[in-house]
């Protein structure tokens, strides 16, 4: 059984059909790339999966459970974490607290315990800080933990968003253009990071325009155009698909 399954998902904005009966699935432990020309509806797919949008039709199931229409925070708790295309960090808060935001849903201390700082609460906090520092270590930002998130470089902000998402113990990590704004060197490092994430047993679904990255790490590609699925399968097969070539031809200067 697949970890994530979309079944005939449609999303409308006013009269506009953003997604048209889209179905695809993501196998556990894989890295899947969602590609397509600008405006194809890729981010809309993500927003439906993460609960930011509610699809008009269709069903989304995660780990065998129907999760259509759940609120984003509930989906994070179930194990779907995301990053945003336009980086959305808490810019004025320290780097470490940004990662703690991801950890939040795994902590249990309630209002009273928080006010009173009970021993259990202190233990939980210490553990959370330790864990979040590990995630910062994992993405290579541990040295920056006390800085304001907004003061990080663009590439590091993207990494911080990944660390924040990882801190919530996800089964599925959804990355929206993780290499956007990164230089070549950073992109190469990102490829290693994504493989390391997969090696931790976390399934990755990503949108990316950088085709080198997509071709190197994705086991499966899903291609969208105008809200419709036009191809899916192994990268080499998809790349040879005439419909895909047609969709991309002249649209952008993508390097295959």
């Amino acid at each position: 059984m697949s970890l994530l399954e979309l079944h005939e998902v449609s999303k409308l904005f006013g009269g506009l059909v953003a997604l048209n009966e889209l179905s695809f699935s993501v196998e556990e432990g894989s890295v899947v790339g969602l590609i397509g020309p600008n405006g194809a509806g890729k981010t809309t797919v993500f927003n439906c999966i993460t609960g930011n949008y509610r699809p008009e039709h269709g069903r989304i199931s995660f780990a065998g459970r129907n999760v259509t229409g759940l609120r984003p925070h509930a989906l994070v708790k179930l194990g779907i974490a995301r990053t945003f295309q336009s980086i959305r960090l808490f810019g004025r808060l320290p780097v470490l607290e940004n990662v703690l935001a991801g950890r939040h849903c795994r902590l249990k201390s309630g209002l009273l315990a928080s006010m009173l700082h009970t021993p259990a609460q202190r233990r939980e906090e210490r553990e959370a800080v330790r864990r979040c520092m590990e995630e910062l270590e994992f993405v290579g930002l541990a040295g920056h933990h006390a800085e304001e998130a907004g003061s990080l470089s663009y590439g590091n902000q993207r990494l911080l968003e990944i660390a924040r998402a990882l801190a919530s113990d996800p089964h599925l990590l959804i990355l929206d253009e993780p290499a956007g704004g990164m230089n070549d060197q950073e992109t190469v490092a990102l490829i290693d990071l994504i493989s390391a994430i997969r090696d931790r047993g976390i399934t990755v679904l990503l949108i990316e325009h950088d085709m080198r990255l997509v071709m190197r790490i994705c086991e499966k590609l899903v291609v969208l155009e105008n809200g419709c699925l036009i191809a899916q399968g192994e990268p080499a097969v998809v790349r040879a698909n005439p419909a895909v070539i047609e969709a991309y031809l002249g649209a952008e200067s993508e390097v295959w």
């Binding site: 290579g140 930002l141 541990a142 590091n156 990102l190 990071l193």
Partner: peptide
């Protein structure tokens, strides 16, 4: 209180 665990280990980026 951040335990100093000798950073620089296992980073994937050039931070």
């Amino acid at each position: 209180h951040v335990a100093d665990s000798g950073s620089g280990a296992g980073g994937a980026s050039a931070g």
